[in-house]
């Protein structure tokens, strides 16, 4: 007996993501899903952003396979933070976010950053209820990354190219990274920064402020 199913495989996740989004909108908080491969500098970027920010109330959800190092780094800067341990899963999904929402003072926040598990592939596939996705690529990862991992570049609203202070020591073609990323996603906003030297960070924090204020 043949039975029609006609269902999106990730339908359940998308339903919960919509519910998260409804709660975020109700609280008036702008939400960013921050993604990158391991070690690109997501937590460093957040630390710098929190230190430079004087206006926005920013909360953070940290997603990692194990450990709470990242949440401790954020907590030291006085921001409300929740750590999720996925226990092996390679990405955060909408339900993991839903379950920790009551641990955050959503009503008091202007911006919530969800730092995804370090992984250049899977996080791009699972909506968590965010307004936009932002990705970090450290230039030390190489200029072949946009074409090897096209989905994340295509899904992101902004690309942060981190560790540009290392450029003199690397054989990396920054122009190729930007050209390929823009070919995959012509609307991508690109920031070239160094969390170590602070270069380029003001443009990023200003953009973030404008985005969060609009919501």
């Amino acid at each position: 007996m043949k039975v029609k199913v006609v269902s999106r495989i990730l339908e359940a996740n998308e339903r919960i993501a919509l519910e998260n989004r409804r709660l975020f909108d109700k609280a008036g908080v702008y939400v960013i899903n921050l993604m990158s491969g391991p070690g690109a500098g997501k937590t460093s970027l957040l630390e710098k952003t929190l230190s430079l920010n004087t206006e926005l109330k920013i909360g953070v959800i940290e997603g990692d396979i194990a450990g709470s190092d990242d949440a401790e780094r954020i907590e030291r800067l006085g921001a409300p933070v929740v750590q999720i341990n996925t226990g092996g899963a390679c990405h955060l999904d909408a339900n993991m976010i839903y379950e920790v929402l009551h641990d955050l003072p959503l009503q008091d926040l202007d911006l919530l950053v969800i730092e995804n598990v370090g992984n250049l592939v899977c996080p791009a596939e699972f909506k968590v209820g965010e307004d936009i996705k932002v990705m970090v690529l450290s230039i030390a990862e190489g200029h072949d990354k946009p074409l090897k991992y096209p989905l994340m570049f295509r899904e992101s609203a902004a690309l942060i190219l981190n560790k540009i202070d290392l450029a003199p020591y690397l054989d990396v073609d920054m122009h190729k990274i930007k050209k390929d990323a823009l070919s995959l996603n012509p609307n991508l906003k690109i920031f070239e920064i160094s969390c170590k030297t602070g270069e380029g960070l003001p443009a990023w924090t200003e953009w973030l402020r404008t985005k969060a204020r609009k919501s």
Partner: peptide, 17 residues
């Protein structure tokens, strides 16, 4: 480079026996 993707992101269940 002004194009949009019309197919290729599917993840659907169609039917079953």
């Amino acid at each position: 480079n002004s194009f949009h993707i019309t197919a290729g992101r599917e993840m659907d269940i169609l039917d079953m026996e």
